[in-house]
């Protein structure tokens, strides 16, 4: 039996947060201006992710292209030092493949792909450190990098994970919490309540799902605001540089 009190009777989680609090969320855009068209760095608690976007561009292999819309290519590189126990991960690992597919499907809908026919948008994600909410951090990093690359999107996609402990929904799980409860990751379109991404690991009773969805939507909106602030701050810096 685990000897950690995940949610105490006094309403505090193992790391001192309350049920509906996000972890520290910090982000930067345009972190690697020389090696990519758009880049970003996201820290969600101790989960740290870098994302580089190249494109829209002409691909090496033309045969796979669509004449209707842009093609998305996601590469996910999870560093072997990203967890406490060092472990080499293969790209072909099922879990990684699942994440890649989920990200591709999400952003095919979020990017206005039809204005970039016959092109390739390549997204490279590097996970430096994992502490739960991997898919959410990746989604947020990709959103920021795409915006930085100037690729047309319908709106922000902001994502956060949430879980259910007994009857209490908990927002933004860290790795230890993720291990003991089923985790729902949602991606929200802008300020709306539209879901761009919904992934549930394990299972949740149907009647509890709504409460988990509600807090994760509220959490995503808060993340959108932080990301928006960063994009605007960076925009101002760019503007002041170009105008001077």
């Amino acid at each position: 039996m685990s000897n950690i009190e995940f949610y105490s009777a006094e309403g505090l989680r193992m790391d001192g947060r309350r049920w509906n609090e996000l972890r520290r969320f910090e982000c930067r855009t345009n972190t690697h201006p020389s090696s990519s068209d758009g880049s970003s760095y996201v820290e969600q608690g101790n989960s740290k992710v870098i994302c580089l976007v190249n494109g829209p561009m002409e691909p090496e292999n033309r045969s796979q292209l669509s004449t209707q819309k842009a093609t998305l290519e996601v590469n996910l590189n999870i560093a072997s030092f990203s967890t406490t126990e060092r472990k080499k991960r293969l790209k072909s690992e099922k879990r990684t493949q699942e994440l890649i597919t989920t990200l591709e499907r999400t952003f095919e809908q979020a990017i206005v792909t039809k204005i970039y026919p016959r092109t390739l948008i390549s997204i490279n994600i590097h996970v430096l450190s994992q502490d739960g909410g991997l898919l959410a951090s990746c989604t947020n990093a990709v959103t920021l990098a795409l915006i930085d690359a100037g690729i047309a999107m319908y709106d922000y996609i902001s994502a956060v994970s949430a879980g259910l402990f007994d009857t209490t929904p908990l927002l933004d799980l860290n790795a230890l919490e993720e291990n003991v409860m089923s985790t729902l990751t949602v991606g929200i379109v802008g300020k709306s309540e539209k879901l761009a991404l919904l992934l549930l690991e394990d299972k949740v009773p149907l009647d509890r799902l709504e409460s988990i969805l509600a807090i994760s939507i509220a959490g995503s909106h808060r993340i959108r605001d932080i990301m928006d602030k960063e994009v605007r701050r960076h925009g101002k810096v760019r503007l002041s540089k170009s105008s001077s």
Partner: peptide, 14 residues
């Protein structure tokens, strides 16, 4: 030996 880093949040509303 494994080095473990965990977040720890401090608050003023206890």
């Amino acid at each position: 030996a494994t080095k473990i880093v965990r977040e720890h949040y401090l608050r003023d509303d206890i």
